[in-house]
């Protein structure tokens, strides 16, 4: 009994150590081959480029812990960017007011996902596959596929392009959200409930946990933070287009799973997710510095993910082979 617990804790830790080792390997390798890779400027560049996906991955973590999934976050990012641009340019709202309205809209869109999943008892994969198309379609309808919002004031663009206290402004948002979600997942009853629901949804209900409220909350949070990511994305690029954030949901899910969260729910961590985001971000940035084509990044990310998934099997395989060699047949 004692041994199983130790193995369990050790297994969680081992995954994170493995990921740290991968990250360190990436950094050492790219530092050796790329001349500009190791600079502070490049570190900030990586931070800027990974903030939005980092935000999405962090709020995807509680959802996957409950055994759910949200495929709509990338599309919602696109829709929120468009709404933000529309409210500022055509609605005449100041950027701050437009941003607040966008965040509220994001939370409402998340509530739509959460409501369909908990009230109608539809599977999260199907619900968010639907809203994935719906949100992107709305963004395209609003812009007729052609309209682009640009010429934002500098006071707004600094959110995505400048440094404060020596680090990129948007990094503060990521740090704040990550810290908040980390505390929620690891230090409150919310995290407990997410895990309980992920391990045994019926069991959580029989324990008197407010299962539906917790599940809905995880989707509302994801909607809210997707809208935040949309505002930051717009500030970073200085423009909002209907295709903003295309495919981001898959990067986010990849980072979460790479970070050691079980896709079946229950086990996982927010710091693991952050390591997963870092591993992917450093990889794609480093390959540019190593003068590799961009496609290679996608391929290597895929290989990394598959290796991470197989990682749990390798020690078992080794143990099995060792046992075999000791007792031939």
């Amino acid at each position: 009994m004692d041994a199983t617990i130790r193995v369990r804790n050790w297994k969680g830790l081992r995954h994170e150590l493995l990921l740290l080792a991968v990250l360190a390997g990436e950094i050492l390798y790219f530092n050796a081959v790329g001349s500009r890779f190791g600079t502070l400027d490049n570190l900030f560049d990586i931070l800027r480029h990974s903030t939005e996906i980092g935000l999405l991955a962090v709020v995807m973590t509680p959802i996957i812990l409950t055994g759910g999934i949200d495929l709509s976050v990338g599309s919602l990012l696109g829709l929120c960017a468009i709404l933000f641009g529309k409210m500022w340019r055509d609605g005449g709202l100041p950027p701050l007011t437009a941003a607040v309205c966008t965040l509220l809209f994001g939370a409402m869109a998340g509530a739509l996902n959460g409501g369909l999943i908990t009230v109608l008892r539809l599977p999260p994969l199907i619900v968010t596959l639907g809203t994935y198309s719906l949100f992107r379609g709305l963004a395209e309808a609003i812009t007729h596929g052609a309209d682009t919002f640009t010429n934002f004031p500098a006071s707004f663009l600094c959110l995505g392009q400048e440094n404060r206290f020596g680090i990129p402004v948007q990094a503060f948002a990521l740090i704040l959200v990550a810290a908040g979600v980390w505390l929620m997942v690891h230090r409150t009853t919310f995290g407990r409930s997410f895990r309980a629901i992920g391990f045994a949804p019926e069991g959580a209900r029989y324990a008197g946990l407010p299962v539906d409220r917790r599940v809905a909350f995880s989707y509302i949070l994801a909607g809210f933070v997707s809208a935040l990511a949309a505002v930051i994305y717009t500030a970073r690029l200085g423009q909002a287009k209907a295709d903003a954030g295309t495919g981001y949901e898959l990067y986010a899910i990849t980072a979460v799973v790479l970070g050691g969260t079980s896709i079946f729910g229950g086990s996982g961590s927010v710091h693991g997710t952050l390591l997963g985001v870092a591993a992917i971000a450093v990889l794609s940035n480093g390959l540019v510095h190593a003068h590799q084509p961009r496609e290679v990044a996608g391929m290597l990310t895929g290989v990394l993910l598959l290796l991470a998934l197989c990682g749990g099997v390798i020690p078992k395989l080794v143990a099995f082979l060792r046992a075999r060699s000791r007792h031939p047949n």
């Binding site: 407990r192 309980a196 391990f199 045994a200 019926e202 069991g203 959580a204 324990a207 946990l209 086990s267």
Partner: peptide, 21 residues
């Protein structure tokens, strides 16, 4: 096994599960 105890979670967490608030 399905409803009474969450097998993957520590027994301490199982024991406080109904008294969270």
């Amino acid at each position: 096994r399905r409803h009474g105890v969450i097998l993957e979670m520590p027994i301490a967490a199982n024991m406080t599960m109904a008294i969270h608030p």
